[in-house]
């Protein structure tokens, strides 16, 4: 969910900005957290996605920019980074970034298993772990429910053995909610990951209430509908009520809409920009919209 393509010049500026982060972060408001329902562990209300943005291959400039984003994310109080073996080089780039960032001690490492057949899962998970360079993952999710019947036993066994902390499943674009609902009702999963934003609100009717009922944490992907919502509001003036919520951008307003839902644990906006990661994390501070205000946000975006 890149807000805008990053030019080489912008990246140099971003890298320079990242170098000044400690000073910036002290001036920021503390990022708020929400408890993972099953454990009570507090997670910052904004995470970091990596779809497209961190898939930069072996491009040194792209890798440095990704490291700068991660450094900024941690400096601003972020913890959860989410990836997948499906995202090309993203996991390798994250591994390099958390090593070079130097401030990733509170990382909450979340990735996915994305391969047909349960027997192929452990090898892929181990490869992902090597890419990340972490002793173990905090969260492993079955990507897009692919072979979930076969992968979940592996993940539950890893959790029981202490080599994994949480187990989850993912969908996106509002797809396969019937199957997701069935898994939520029958499997002892800790997390789900779904699409939820001001334009895609299919999850509101059944999935989010069920997550609360079953004490399942909710990671929200595509908070800006893959960047489309940022594009759609680019020329729209920010409504005056945004200031009441401490929002300085549409992105912050849309993130506040998502995290105001009590079932949501954290959205995971992805970006290639240090300024945007700081802006995103700042949305997890201050006050949050109530129901009436959420309706006003929908009306203002034009998705009510």
């Amino acid at each position: 969910m890149t807000h805008a393509p990053l030019t080489r010049r912008a990246m140099l500026v971003a890298s320079a900005a990242a170098a000044t982060l400690p000073a910036l972060s002290t001036a920021q408001q503390a990022i708020l957290t929400r408890a993972i329902p099953k454990s009570g562990e507090a997670l910052p209300l904004i995470g970091l996605g990596s779809w497209i943005t961190f898939n930069v291959g072996n491009d040194p400039a792209g890798r440095n920019a990704s490291t700068a984003v991660m450094r900024a994310f941690f400096a601003a109080g972020g913890r959860l980074i989410d990836s997948s073996p499906m995202y090309g080089s993203s996991q390798e780039v994250i591994g390099e970034g958390i090593k070079k960032a130097g401030n990733a001690s509170r990382l909450f490492a979340a990735t996915k298993v994305w391969i047909s057949g349960g027997s192929n899962g452990p090898a892929q998970i181990e490869e992902s772990r090597r890419f990340w360079g972490v002793p173990k993952f905090d969260l492993l999710q079955v990507h897009n429910l692919l072979s979930w019947e076969e992968h979940l036993p592996t993940l539950f066994a890893m959790k029981a053995a202490g080599t994994l902390r949480y187990v989850g499943v993912t969908t996106s674009h509002g797809r396969r909610h019937d199957e997701l609902e069935r898994i939520m009702k029958t499997q002892p999963i800790d997390f789900i990951q779904i699409t939820y934003n001001v334009a895609s609100r299919e999850a509101e009717s059944r999935i989010l209430p069920l997550a609360r009922e079953r004490k399942i944490a909710v990671i929200v992907n595509r908070p800006f509908e893959g960047g489309d919502l940022i594009e759609a509001t680019r020329v729209k003036p920010l409504p005056a009520f945004a200031a009441e919520l401490g929002c300085k951008s549409w992105a912050q307003l849309m993130l506040k809409f998502i995290i105001a839902h009590p079932a949501v644990t954290c959205p995971i906006p992805a970006t290639t920009s240090v300024a945007h990661v700081q802006e995103n994390l700042a949305a997890a501070s201050g006050s949050f919209p109530d129901q009436a205000m959420r309706a006003r946000i929908l009306a203002a975006v034009g998705t009510a």
């Binding site: 393509p5 497209i52 943005t53 898939n55 930069v56 291959g57 491009d59 792209g62 674009h173 290639t272």
Partner: peptide
């Protein structure tokens, strides 16, 4: 499943910038 709900952009793994930088490198 629900293949009709997918669009081409769902399968794009990289940004245009990364793609064109690939040729440069």
């Amino acid at each position: 499943s629900e293949w009709w709900t997918y669009s081409l952009s769902d399968f794009l793994l990289f940004s245009p910038r990364t793609y064109h930088r690939l040729f440069e490198l």
